[in-house]
Design a protein around this nucleic acid. Structure first.
Length: 323
DNA sequence: AACCACATCAACCGCCAGATA
DNA sequence: TTATCTGGCGGTTGATGTGGT
């Protein structure tokens, strides 16, 4: 025997009248059998829908919205212990429903933990978090380079556009950036620069040595950056022709003791910088030698990305990121 | 004012486990 | 023992709200 079909029942948001009918019936008769309740209560709804409406919305004593800091901490702690067992978590929070806790987790707490560099699935710190920052900045650099090379000439962008695989990768990186910094106005704008990005992300910490590697990484992607970097090492380059002061690249940072540097966060396999390169003096040479379809130009970014994604230790995090 | 992108959350769907015939 | 019913759970969807351009 199969279950009776409930195709003719109403779906979607509940009206005030429906709510009233359900409340009045349950107050008078109790919950009883949810399967038969709708008919008895005069509702054209399935029993499941009635039960959900009652338990998540109409039931007396339900507290909705406005999660306190204590409740937040409790949810995080319980989630660490129980995982996505929302009903069990809700049992520890009187007046809260599992559905609301689940929604609150997915819309607020998950992002909060990610911003703190904590994997919301495992509740462990994300080993790749600083590297993710690096990728974010590198993508910005790449995007700026494209903008700089070619605001108008489609021929110069042709090779990039023809390489759909790299486009997919760029899209993934863009998504990574959105996770860290959901403000979309910072991406793919000609005047964006690394300094703005770092200053904006006040939550994020960037290891000084890593910042050095970051510049090296930029240089691999953008020869123009490389040239500027070598000319003023205590400034961060940007593509609008200005140099912005960088507090993380002063002389003290250069002497940053290597034994305090956590190699776990180091940049994997960046190609060495070639500061004396002289082929970037004009756009033509850039076009000939450094259009990004040349695998070597983007490899540092994408190799790093692929290494991250393939790392089992952080797979749940990346699974979340890549959706 | 219109449009767009993103965030929020109520509600739905499919699955599962325990109860029952 | 098996088939079916029922309630509960977690994941997902889609309508709506909000803020930025």
């Amino acid at each position: 025997m199969t279950r009776s079909p409930e195709n003719d029942v109403k779906k979607g948001p509940w009206s005030i009248e429906e709510d009233q009918k359900l409340i009045e019936y349950i107050q008078k008769h109790g919950q009883g059998n949810w399967q038969t309740l709708p008919k008895k209560a005069g509702l054209n709804r399935c029993g499941k829908s009635c039960r959900l409406r009652w338990t998540n919305y109409l039931r007396p004593g339900i507290k909705r919205g406005g999660f306190s800091a204590e409740e937040e901490a409790t949810i995080i702690a319980l989630h660490k212990e129980l995982g996505n067992k929302w009903s069990r978590i809700a049992a520890h929070l009187p007046k809260r429903t599992d559905n609301e806790i689940k929604n609150f987790w997915n819309t607020h707490l998950k992002k909060k933990l990610l911003k703190r560099g904590i994997d919301p699935t495992t509740h462990k710190s994300i080993p790749d978090f600083n590297l993710l920052n690096l990728l974010q900045a590198q993508l910005l650099s790449v995007s700026n380079l494209y903008n700089f090379i070619n605001p108008l000439d489609p021929a110069l962008n042709y090779n990039l556009q023809a390489n759909s695989k790299d486009f997919v990768k760029i899209q993934i990186l863009q998504k990574l950036m959105q996770v860290i910094n959901p403000n979309p106005t910072q991406y793919f704008q000609g005047n964006s620069n690394l300094g703005d990005l770092i200053q904006h992300n006040t939550d994020l910490t960037i290891d000084p040595l890593q910042a050095e590697s970051m510049i090296a990484g930029f240089s691999n992607i953008s020869p123009l950056l490389n040239q500027q970097h070598t000319s003023t090492s205590n400034s961060l380059p940007c593509f609008d022709g200005e140099m912005i002061p960088s507090p993380i690249l002063d002389d003290n940072v250069k002497d940053y003791p290597s034994n305090t540097y956590n190699s776990e966060y180091s940049l994997p396999s960046l190609v060495s910088v070639t500061p004396d390169s002289s082929i970037f003096n004009n756009l033509e040479s850039i076009e000939q030698s450094h259009i990004p379809t040349e695998a070597s130009e983007q490899s540092s970014v994408f190799d790093a990305l692929e290494n991250l994604v393939n790392d089992e230790a952080s797979s749940s995090f990346w699974k979340y990121i890549l959706g």
